[in-house]
Every structure is written in structure tokens, then in C-alpha cells.
């Protein structure tokens, strides 16, 4: 079975699907870090909020698409509130402070979700368009998962275009390379940071809303995804778009194939992968600045 090409292909699709969710999360985390030197442990909480907001909108409107459109915006608004109240003043704080405050936020977010939606595991049903499975090489595969892969690719293409081809993009790239330079260019740095932060939150929310239809929506879903995302970012290199892509693919695949081939070690494979990468390149695969 393990050498069956169809089986391997299906697993590859599963790996890609996880990789795309991780990409949506890690790209925000990573670019925010690169630009603002700010590490947000509550990034997984935003993902969880995305799923719950999606669920809430779905329950009230009955439309998956409305949920998918609104949930990320809701998460972005939450992000904005945090930016203004907390994160702005933490931007120049030492990493320890950032880690502790955002760690505290994880608990706040977790209980806020439990208060609002209870402890039970829920889910968002997939929309009718995706109710049919497609047949690939004679194997049945849920089409919704293909949608996730497509969405991830689309977001990547858009981000790539914005970062490489637009003025805003060049400002952001310059900021990641050399934070001081951006202010020399006469650009409103605060506004640029704020914008990037909002987009990072939006993508985290999007990721959560999308994931709500494949994974259970439950308190604690933030924790497991956070660790995977952090590993992606560490492996890829903090602050790097390329790193987020490559890291997501590597971790998504390693996690998926690890579960299949080495179930007794399961997640240990991704940590082992991380250790190997870091032994060879301490700053990650695409370091943006010296570790």
C-alpha cells in the first residue's frame, strides 16, 4: 500500500492541504516578525477565532460563503483592537515581554471562546458545491480539500505579486531587510506596520474559517496549530515569504507522511526535521538577518 502511487498521490494532496493552511498562518506571523520584530504567540488564537466567527456567521446566515467572507474581517478587527491597545506599545519591548503578553492573551482568548461557544467540538459544514467528491486516479477525494489548496496558491500568488511588483511591496521588503531604512524613505512606518499586521490577522482568520470545515472547531485548536506554525517559521527563516512557503510545504508533508509511515513517532518527525535544518542553518532556510 505504501508504494501504491495513487495512495502516495492522495497523501501528497493531504500534505499540500495542511501546508496551505500553515502557509496562511505562517506568512502573517513571519512577515510581522520581519517587519516589526514582534512575535505573536496569540497567532493561533486568531486562527481559532476565525473558525468560531465562521461558525457563528454560518449558523446565523446559513451561508458558508458569507461566513468565509466575514470571519476573517472579524478577526482583523479583533487584531486591530489588540494592535491599538497592546501591541503598539510592545513593538520596541524586548522579546521576553512580547512573548509573555501574547502568551497571556492565549489564555484570555481560550476562555473567551469557551464562554461564548462552550467546550464542545463543533464544525462548519462544507458548502454544497463541494459536497461531491472528485475521483482522482480512481480514488475518491473530497473536493473541498482541493479548494483549500487552490485558495492557498491564490493567496500566495497575490502576496507574491504585491510584494514583488508594487510600491507597497517594495517598502515592506525593504523594511524586513533593514527596518531603519523604511523610516528614511519618508514612509509612514506606523501605518505600514499596521497594514501588515491587519493583513496577517486577516490571513490567520481566513485560515481558521477554512479549516473549520475540515478540522473540529473546539477550544484548544489554537495550540496545536500554533506550534506547527512556529516550526514552519523557524525552519523557513523568520521574516521570509519564501521561507514561509518552503517551510509550510516541508512541515505539511513531513507531518502528513509522518502520521502515515511512522505513526508511533508521528509529530517527532517534524521536530527532527527542524533540528536537522537548524543544525545546518541556524537562521532557518531563508534567513533574513543573522540569528
Amino acid at each position: 500500500m505504501f508504494t501504491d502511487p495513487t495512495f502516495l498521490f492522495i497523501q501528497t494532496l493531504n500534505g499540500l492541504q495542511l501546508a496551505m493552511l500553515l502557509f496562511l498562518l505562517s506568512v502573517g506571523l513571519s512577515v510581522i516578525f520581519g517587519l516589526m520584530n514582534f512575535i505573536n504567540l496569540a497567532h493561533g488564537t486568531l486562527y481559532m477565532l476565525g473558525a468560531y466567527f465562521g461558525l457563528w456567521v454560518y449558523v446565523n446566515t446559513g451561508s458558508f460563503w458569507v461566513a468565509l467572507a466575514l470571519a476573517p474581517i472579524g478577526v482583523m478587527v479583533v487584531g486591530m483592537v489588540f494592535y491599538v491597545t497592546l501591541i503598539k506599545r510592545l513593538r520596541t519591548a524586548p522579546p521576553l515581554k512580547q512573548v509573555l503578553v501574547t502568551f497571556g492573551l492565549i489564555f484570555v482568548g481560550l476562555d473567551a471562546v469557551r464562554m461564548s461557544w462552550g467546550n464542545l467540538s463543533k464544525s462548519i459544514p462544507t458548502p454544497d458545491v463541494f459536497s461531491q467528491s472528485v475521483t482522482i486516479f480512481g480514488e475518491i477525494y473530497p473536493s473541498y480539500r482541493l479548494f483549500i489548496i487552490g485558495l492557498g496558491v491564490a493567496v500566495f500568488v497575490i502576496l507574491y505579486f504585491v510584494l514583488e511588483r508594487t510600491r507597497i511591496g517594495s517598502v515592506i521588503r525593504a523594511g524586513v531587510d533593514d527596518r531603519d531604512m523604511v523610516s528614511c524613505l519618508g514612509i509612514n512606518v506606523d501605518l505600514a506596520f499596521f497594514g501588515v499586521f491587519c493583513i496577517g490577522c486577516y490571513l490567520a482568520g481566513l485560515s481558521g474559517a477554512v479549516a473549520g470545515a475540515v478540522f473540529p472547531v473546539e477550544p484548544g485548536m489554537d495550540m496545536s496549530i500554533l506550534i506547527l506554525t512556529l516550526i514552519v517559521v523557524v525552519v523557513g527563516g523568520l521574516g521570509s515569504l519564501k521561507g514561509a512557503v518552503v517551510g509550510s510545504l516541508m512541515i505539511g508533508m513531513a507531518e502528513t507522511f509522518g502520521q502515515v509511515f511512522l505513526p508511533q513517532f508521528a509529530s517527532v518527525t517534524i521536530y527532527a526535521l527542524m533540528v536537522v535544518v537548524l543544525l545546518v542553518r541556524p537562521g532557518g532556510l531563508f534567513p533574513t538577518r543573522a540569528a
Binding site: 497592546l86 509573555l100 497571556g104 492573551l105 489564555f107 484570555v108 481560550l110 464562554m115
Partner: peptide, 15 residues
Amino acid sequence: YWMMYMGLFFIGIVL
């Protein structure tokens, strides 16, 4: 929901 209050307490102390 004690964890929420702990979280807020931590944040307050740190800040």
C-alpha cells in the same frame, strides 16, 4: 473561566 483572569493578571504584571 479562571484562566482568563490569570491571563489578564499576567499581562498586567508584565506591562
